[in-house]
């Protein structure tokens, strides 16, 4: 994975964060944040999913193991899911996955779940900023080397 370079923070490290945003709430929230011209860090790569319940734990595990610095799952507030109950499943799954990742030694900040509704453009911007700062403070996920090296030609 090519590393981003920027002089911000002095060390040139910019975290790379994967965001799964639900189509009905959080993606619209992100849209609102953009339309409202809110300032936020540009470290997120958003993948739109139809529901936060679509995010299988494999997505998160694979992303983190392959070297992304953080994964953020955004869904509708509980009780407001477009499909009535999708995010309730996300909630249970997220809880277990977070514990499991922590159990194998991955910092809990690297996997986060948040509820952002379509009207909460400001919350989206805040969340992204918060999470980015937390992960920036942690530093790169898996420093290069050892079994997790991502040298060219590895893949």
């Amino acid at each position: 994975m090519a590393s981003e370079s920027s002089d911000e923070g002095g060390n040139g490290y910019e975290p790379k964060i994967l965001v799964f945003a639900c189509n009905w709430c959080s993606y619209a929230g992100a849209d609102l944040a953009g339309v409202s011209r809110l300032q936020m860090p540009a470290n997120c790569r958003i993948i739109r999913v139809m529901c936060s319940g679509r995010v299988r734990p494999e997505f998160v595990v694979t992303a983190l193991s392959k070297g992304l610095d953080g994964v953020l799952v955004l869904g509708c507030h509980p009780g407001e899911c477009h499909y009535s109950e999708g995010n309730y499943f996300t909630r249970r799954r997220g809880l277990l996955l977070k514990n499991l990742l922590q159990f194998v030694g991955i910092e809990p900040e690297r996997f986060q779940v948040r509820w952002v509704s379509a009207s909460e453009g400001a919350k989206f911007a805040d969340t992204v900023e918060q999470v980015t700062e937390q992960i920036r403070a942690l530093g790169p996920n898996r420093p290069q080397g050892g079994m997790h090296s991502t040298e060219p030609g590895d893949r």
């Binding site: 734990p57 494999e58 595990v61 694979t62 193991s65 392959k66 277990l96 194998v104 090296s149």
Partner: peptide, 21 residues
């Protein structure tokens, strides 16, 4: 393809965590 065809050591973690979940 979730895992490389060759069993790469650095994908072992993915293998075991996915199995666990």
């Amino acid at each position: 393809r979730w895992l490389d065809r060759t069993p790469l050591p650095r994908e072992n973690e993915i293998y075991h965590l996915i199995r666990a979940v």
